[in-house]
Design a protein around this nucleic acid. Structure first.
Lengths: 328, 328
DNA sequence: GTGAAAGCGCTAACAT
DNA sequence: ATGTTAGCGCTTTCAC
């Protein structure tokens, strides 16, 4: 096709061989004699020939394209996820077709349909919940679907997610250890399943310990929302602990606590976050938080990409707690 | 092609029409009668048909694929750039083929060659400098090449870049206004052209004002490098100003200054950054910095993508200064 | 408006 | 090992 791209036929002509000889030369397993290969390579070099992978995939039935859809691509957590994922894909010889779901927000179906049209071999969903009909279509067409931090109630989909409940329990235990009497749990207004799981597991744990918890949620998942939460919640002087279900929220909350509400952290307020984004480790923050091991998470995603084993349907990635300085 | 995807032929058969009728139905300008179109659409719906864009592009000579190559995808600045870019591409009906150059670092040529093989219509380079041979090949094949914050010495390439020199001048003027007597200029060890331009423009300006400047550079472009720079440079008590060519560096530097080296900012040390990443506005930092207007920058990139006007070869995006609290 | 046929660039099965 | 042939799924003349 195309503007000016050289075709295999032209190369064949110049090298004085058949079209298939050219094809074979550029096919890993192809059986071509040294001299022919040399001639082909020479001609290709001179002409500036590049195989057309699109045409290649037409026969192969493997496009080598992996669709990646997600929103919030510039948030510290997601961007790192995308970074690792795209590196891993490239290493495996796979191409990353990135679809930003920012405009789609609630309905990522059209994006996935687009991916179908490009014959993506697999689709990785970083955020957003695909409707059941789409999931069905994936299966019908043999397109592997991998959901990250999303739990669908069906056994035929690949899901890899952090152990949110356990993470929330760790946070709860840490705040109990800090001897908190009344704690806040803050989440964003977007109410993603992951955040919901963290909030509910945390609340449940605290309730069982008879510790009062006040829930706050609002705005997007951002520093600003956390800051607002801090300003509003900390008017209540009796709150002496907080679990922010996302580091971004936690950092905003922390700034509000110290800089706006006159709290001393951790002396009269303990804060625990979730994710362990780079900023959580910055000297001004030193946030105690639950870490999602992004590398192993990504690894599992990549493995789910090429392994056919159905045992790896739902993979729960264990989380840990990193102790820094914001919890007493 | 492939696994289970339905082809246009199957749709044609079920609808009782010709293959071309199906094709026309799914082609924007196609002339099909209402009844035929209806039948086709119905059959397609029932069968779950999806046009194969790969095959489509084979005739069209337009793949709709835009290659994007860059590294450091999880840094606040680049990730935001990618975020905006991918949104813009999608809005224009273009697909984003993302190639992470993390492994490539110095040589992005192989990645661009890969993009050729996928017949990308255009290639956007976020970071890294493509060798001349590759640029030639782009032109030869009619692939538009767009370089961001990279200045190549040739008139046949699209480049959109922030006005680094002017930004550096703004920073210099600000530090002069703060009555600094001895200033540091810190950059990373990666020595990207953009950073180099900032350093040299700044130094030049300061020299012309006879203000002593000490240059530091090392490590990757990160918070940590900035922190290290701060720890090392601020042993010299006479340094009372610093221009960090990147906000990430500036934030690390700032933390080192306050938390490690006992400096009071801005009282006895003024700091100016560059980029205006979100974290620069966080309450704990409130960094005075030069802002790169990412939205207009992205806009220009997108425009360069589809406009053929050669006047838009080299586009300089004006920068401004945002005053916060780190400069006296 | 519609179908038949040719062709996009490539690979693979089939001969030789 | 090499050339010939037949597709891959689609669009696009070209007739009618």
């Amino acid at each position: 096709m195309g503007r000016g791209f050289v075709t295999a036929e032209e190369v064949a002509k110049r090298a004085g061989v058949s079209r298939s000889a050219v094809s074979r030369t550029f096919t890993p397993g192809g059986s071509v004699s040294k001299p022919v290969r040399r001639k082909v390579l020479k001609a290709a070099q001179e002409l500036g020939y590049r195989v057309n992978r699109l045409a290649q995939g037409l026969n192969n039935d493997r496009s080598n394209l992996i669709g990646v859809v997600g929103s919030n691509l510039s948030s510290p957590f997601i961007s790192r996820q995308l970074d690792l994922l795209s590196i891993g894909l490239l290493r495996r010889g796979l191409q990353c077709l990135l679809l930003n779901a920012a405009d789609a927000r609630k309905d990522i179906a059209p994006l996935i349909e687009l991916l179908f049209e490009f014959r993506a071999q697999a689709i990785v969903v970083l955020s957003g919940e695909p409707p059941a009909s789409i999931v069905d279509e994936c299966i019908a067409n043999g397109v592997r679907l991998i959901l990250i931090n999303q739990r669908l109630d069906r056994a035929d989909t690949n899901m890899v997610l952090s152990d949110d409940s356990h993470g929330a329990h760790l946070a709860a235990m840490r705040l109990i250890q800090a001897k908190c009497n009344k704690v806040a749990v803050v989440s964003s207004g977007s109410q993603t399943p992951a955040q919901l799981r963290r909030v509910s597991a945390f609340t449940q744990h605290m309730n069982s310990e008879s510790i009062e918890v006040v829930a706050w949620s609002g705005g997007p998942t951002s520093y600003e929302s956390g800051y607002r939460a801090g300003c509003e919640l900390l008017l209540d002087k009796s709150i002496d602990g907080a679990f922010c279900v996302t580091d971004l929220l936690a950092l905003g909350f922390l700034d509000a606590a110290r800089l706006e509400m006159g709290r001393i952290v951790p002396e009269n307020l303990s804060i625990v976050g979730f994710d362990d984004i780079p900023q959580a480790g910055w000297k001004s923050y030193q946030l105690t938080t639950v870490v999602q091991p992004l590398d192993t998470l990504t690894e599992k995603v990549l493995k789910a990409l090429d392994s056919d084993e159905p045992e790896t349907r739902l993979q729960l990635v264990p989380v840990t707690m990193v102790e820094r300085t914001t919890a007493r």
